[in-house]
Amino acid sequence: MKSEKFEYMCKCMIDSFLKIAKEMADLKFNLNNNLDPVFNIKKTAIIVGIVGANPGRIQLETNETMSQTIAEKMNGETLNNPLEVYFSLAEFANIFSGNGLTVINNQFPGSQLRLTPPSIFVGESLELTTPNIEHAKSVLFDGEDLLRIDIGFKGE
């Protein structure tokens, strides 16, 4: 894939994340790839798959505190059930990924990209790898905590 196209696709996703985080959770993030998120032992990862001419996946990695913050701000209430937190985070990832994908599909109509349902992984020392795809990691900071988005695509 040409680097310009890959960078454009990644930018669409990050822009979409920033927009949806503001609209849905009133959270303002800044991109800062100089920071390195230190996840506590337990990590939550949401993976939204992409099919079409450029298959890939969007990975959202957060710690428990950030997961809770996003989920509670989205719902406007305290969430005591971890499952509600995970599902809210998955919905959040689904929405911003879908939004980003729409922009990409409009720019590259032949791509015909579509999402697969979000998967939630929670675990200790969780490490995620998608072999053989081009990917870029972005670190986002809301002033208090960090999260990471890893965007990957393959194909021409």
Binding site: I47, V51, P55, F121, G123, E124, E127, L128, T130
Partner: peptide, 11 residues
């Protein structure tokens, strides 16, 4: 989609 591996403990 391309396969993604998730490796950890207490998953």
């Amino acid at each position: 989609t391309p396969p993604t591996l998730a490796i950890g403990s207490n998953m």
